[in-house]
Measured scan of single mutants.
Amino acid sequence: EELVKLQGERVRGLKQQKASAELIEEEVAKLLKLKAQL
């Protein structure tokens, strides 16, 4: 659960930094994978 929170914050940070869409999608995919494991 802690990992999900951390990953969510990372995604939010990337969006604020206007990171590339590919990078954000990659991180979102990791986030969804972590959530699925809960």
Rank of each mutant, 00 (worst) to 15 (best):
K33V: 03
Q17D: 08
Q17M: 12
Q17P: 03
K18D: 15
A29R: 06
K5W: 03
G8K: 15
V28N: 12
K5M: 07
L34S: 10
Q7P: 01
E27W: 00
A29Y: 02
S20G: 10
L14K: 06
L23D: 09
E27G: 04
V28T: 14
Q7I: 02
K35P: 15
K5C: 02
G13N: 15
R12S: 13
K35S: 15
I24K: 11
L6R: 12
L38Y: 15
L31K: 11
E1P: 00
E1N: 15
L32G: 13
Q7K: 01
L6A: 14
K33W: 03
V28Q: 15
L32S: 13
K5R: 05
G13K: 14
G8M: 13
E27M: 00
R10Y: 07
E26L: 09
V11H: 06
V28C: 09
V4N: 07
L32Y: 15
L3P: 00
K5E: 10
A19C: 10
E2S: 04
L6F: 08
K30Y: 02
V4F: 08
L34C: 06
E25W: 01
K18N: 08
V4Y: 12
R12L: 10
A29N: 06
E9N: 11
L3E: 14
K15F: 07
R10T: 11
R10P: 12
R12E: 15
Q16P: 05
K33S: 12
L3D: 02
Q37A: 14
R12I: 09
V4T: 06
R12C: 00
E27H: 03
K30Q: 08
L6G: 06
G13V: 14
L32N: 15
K35I: 04
L31F: 03
V4A: 06
R10N: 06
E1F: 03
K35F: 00
L6Y: 05
K30D: 12
E26H: 15
E9C: 02
L34V: 09
E2P: 00
A19W: 03
S20H: 07
L34Q: 12
L14N: 02
A19E: 06
E27F: 00
Q37P: 13
A21Q: 11
L6N: 10
L34F: 07
K33H: 10
V28I: 04
K18C: 08
L3C: 00
I24P: 09
K5Y: 05
Q17K: 09
G8N: 09
V11A: 06
K33I: 03
E22F: 04
Q37S: 12
R10G: 05
E2F: 04
L6C: 03
E2W: 00
Q17I: 03
A29L: 02
A29C: 03
E25P: 06
K18L: 07
A29V: 04
Q37G: 14
R10M: 09
L3R: 05
L38H: 10
L32T: 13
V11R: 10
Q17F: 03
Q37Y: 02
E22V: 12
K33A: 08
Q16N: 12
E2D: 15
Q17T: 11
I24G: 09
R12M: 05
K18P: 11
V11D: 07
K30V: 07
E26C: 10
L31A: 08
E26I: 13
E22K: 12
K5H: 05
L31T: 09
Q17E: 14
K15N: 07
I24Q: 14
A19K: 05
G8E: 15
E2T: 01
A21F: 09
L3G: 02
Q17W: 02
E22Q: 13
K33N: 06
E9Y: 00
R10E: 09
R12T: 11
L34I: 06
L32H: 12
L32I: 08
Q16W: 02
L31R: 07
E2N: 09
E26D: 10
S20F: 00
L31V: 03
G8T: 14
L3Q: 14
L23A: 10
L3T: 10
Q37D: 13
Q16Y: 03
